[in-house]
Amino acid sequence: MAAKGLILLLFFSGLVSSNVEKTIFLAPEAREIAHDAVLLGRRLPVLTPSNWSLRTKIDAEFPTEGSSQGKVSWFFLDNLTEYQRYEVRICWAATQPTAFTLKTYEPSVAWEQPDLRASIERFVPNSQQQDIRTGVAEPTSDQPRISSALVLQVSAAADYFTKNATLMSNVPLVDVDVVLDPYILNVFPRSLLPNAACIVLVAIGSFFVSRWVIALIDGLLRADAALEKKQQ
């Protein structure tokens, strides 16, 4: 029964496998952000170092001549620490084949480029309909604010082929986790700290266990040698 349970566990663990796409960046210098850019950014799904994970659904579509990387979604990365290294990850189930492309822009750059601004404005009504905002209040002052912030562009292209006409004409929403992960000392992601601690503990434990095993084996060998010598 135990063997059957292990086989089932291994089988089902393969069924829940997932994919990950990420981008790594240094947080920009804190700059003045125009009120209009902040207002639009606050209407996007927001991620911050304290509110670092968001589970949502993302629109995807098959690549076209006008949109080779698929459907575009936008997120606002706020309250970053200047010059700290971060990574943003998109995690999704392997049962939803999708090709993701991630890019970051400073808010003023995205706001001043007509194509990016138009893309954000098109996405905002969709984000409100899907109710994936994080509840951050919109600014009430007309004064610019200073922050280290970025806007994240996520392009999602459907990456499958099927004889099912419905799935080919209507790409379903993709369930994703969007994660903002700061790097500790700009070296490794914060989310890896538990894994790193576990590895260190296992390494230390393995060291002492190996010394104990070596001492035990050495003692047995010495005892056998002494017994053999005594018998002679």
Rank of each mutant, 00 (worst) to 15 (best):
A3Q: 13
K4W: 05
F11C: 13
F12Y: 11
N19M: 14
K22Q: 13
T23Q: 04
A27Q: 03
E29Y: 10
E29W: 04
A30I: 02
R31P: 00
E32A: 14
L40I: 07
R43V: 00
V46W: 02
V46K: 09
T48G: 06
P49T: 06
L54S: 08
L54E: 10
T56G: 06
T56W: 08
K57C: 05
E61P: 01
S73P: 00
W74H: 03
L77D: 02
D78I: 05
L80R: 02
R89A: 14
R89K: 13
I90E: 10
C91E: 14
W92H: 14
W92Y: 11
T98Q: 03
T98G: 01
T98L: 04
F100Q: 01
F100V: 11
L102F: 05
L102M: 10
K103I: 06
Y105V: 10
D115A: 14
R117G: 07
R117D: 02
I120S: 04
F123N: 09
V124S: 10
V124G: 01
P125L: 11
Q128I: 15
D131E: 12
R133A: 03
T134K: 09
T140R: 11
A149D: 10
V154G: 02
A156M: 05
D159F: 12
Y160M: 05
F161E: 10
A165K: 13
A165L: 07
L167Y: 09
L167P: 07
N170L: 12
D175R: 11
D175T: 08
V176T: 03
V176N: 04
I184K: 03
N186G: 08
F188V: 10
F188K: 04
S191I: 10
L192E: 13
A197F: 06
A197Q: 14
I199P: 04
V202W: 15
I204Q: 11
F207A: 07
V209Q: 13
S210M: 11
R211Q: 15
A215E: 09
D218M: 00
D218R: 06
L220H: 13
L221M: 07
R222D: 14
L227K: 09
K229Y: 07
K230Q: 11
Q231W: 09
Q232F: 04
